[in-house]
Amino acid sequence: MDTLGEILMIAFGAALIHNFVLHYFVGICPFIGVSRRVDLAFSMGCAVTFVVCVASVLSWTLTTWVLQPGAPIPSFIAGRDTDLTILTYLSYIVVIAASVQFVELYIRRYHPPLYKSFGVYLPLITTNCAILFACLEISKHVGGTATDAWGLHHALALALGGGIGFTLALVLMSGIRQELDLCDIPRPFVGIPVVMVVGGILALAFLGFTGSDQGLVDAFAKGGTP
């Protein structure tokens, strides 16, 4: 398959088939916390998408050049092959914290109202599992044991697809929750339980995307050969 096809498959898979929230359960905190209003959910999704992209690019670069076994930079300094994979988690969390700080500064400087409405949830993006998860997924395809080596474009495709999928899940949920506010919900279900059950139904719906990537691969293969 050509590079464009690969990128599309990775992004499509991350956005719909293996949706970050509804399949991997990462980023559940904002999924519950910031899904009361559609506009807020959408801005949150965009902020997370942006941070995921920045963090993925940085972590891919870091893994390729510094962390993976036999990486160029430390090997050059030490004069022999090095293995710094044990520092992976530590360096990723630093990269993520730095990216979040950067986004926070940007939003505070140029979009003060948005900054105010995010409140505590903006710095909390650092502890949003989705971002670390994306970095870890990418590192799986970079290290020495990987069978398929990913380039920067693959990493970015996963981050962008995952971010869009996260935004989609958040917006869907907030739309449903706005409607739920007008409903007469049984008392024990008021609040989080009903959100969880609705999340389950959404996850069930997204389960329908499973396997559709194989169909797309076949379609690509047919379209590719005359």
Partner: peptide, 17 residues
């Protein structure tokens, strides 16, 4: 599968309340 996790957690919370 993933939906089961959401359902179980939601229903257990409802049971608690």
């Amino acid at each position: 599968l993933p939906p089961g996790a959401f359902f179980t957690f939601g229903l257990l919370m409802a049971l608690l309340s």
